[in-house]
Amino acid sequence: MPDEAGTIGLRVARYRPDTDSEPGWQEYDVPLRREWTVLDALNHVKNEVDPTLSFRWSCRMGICGSCGMDVDGTPRLTCGTFLADFAPGPIRVEPLSNFPVVRDLVVDIDDFIQKLPRVKPWIIRDEEKSVDEGEYLQSPEELDAYKQFSMCINCMLCYAACPVYGLDPDFVGPAAIALAERYDLDSRDQGARERLDVLIEHEGVWGCTFVGECTRVCPKHVDPAGAIQRYKLKAARESVKALLLPRGAR
């Protein structure tokens, strides 16, 4: 394939809250370059064609998690999504599903930001060691136990892919539950009970029907769907224990 093979169409969702009552479409033609991603194309539009187009981005290397958008109906990091894979186009670019649209391709992520701390994604100790006692040691095996779930970059593609979250915004959602699992599995952490108390609620893990789309769209292979099902099993095991064992025996 030559370096530049003509152009490709971008069909971009536009929403200007001051003038539009609902989003509409705008078409742009951009050079179809082999090394260009959808984000490169959007930046080309913004710099050369239409400076009013709004979207979020930062690192361009799949780690900041800001440039997530629906590309042809599937949530993706636009910095890792190549134009050539969608030739001949046109490519449909929309703001992430399930979030309110602020402007053009920018969504309001407040709901996610408020949900994250509810699962207490930090190391909880019954009693903190003093600095003098040194660090909490961890073996490579203990690291492996939670490493996969620690790869999350909070890009929210999983929320955009989750029909349950779309239909019931109270649902805590994939990334937050995967992150709870990440700390539960950490050998240094003792906060599993506190997180379980949050996630055993109705809007915790129980709304999930294991669609599995969160895992399919995750750019970091975190597998939130697996984490949620394991959480259900954990919640069930603890509930049965609480029912069968006398108080305080655990």
Partner: peptide, 12 residues
């Protein structure tokens, strides 16, 4: 968000 009129897309 304060003062911003966001758009909620309906789900078919």
């Amino acid at each position: 968000m304060n003062g911003v009129r966001t758009y909620r897309r309906p789900i078919s």
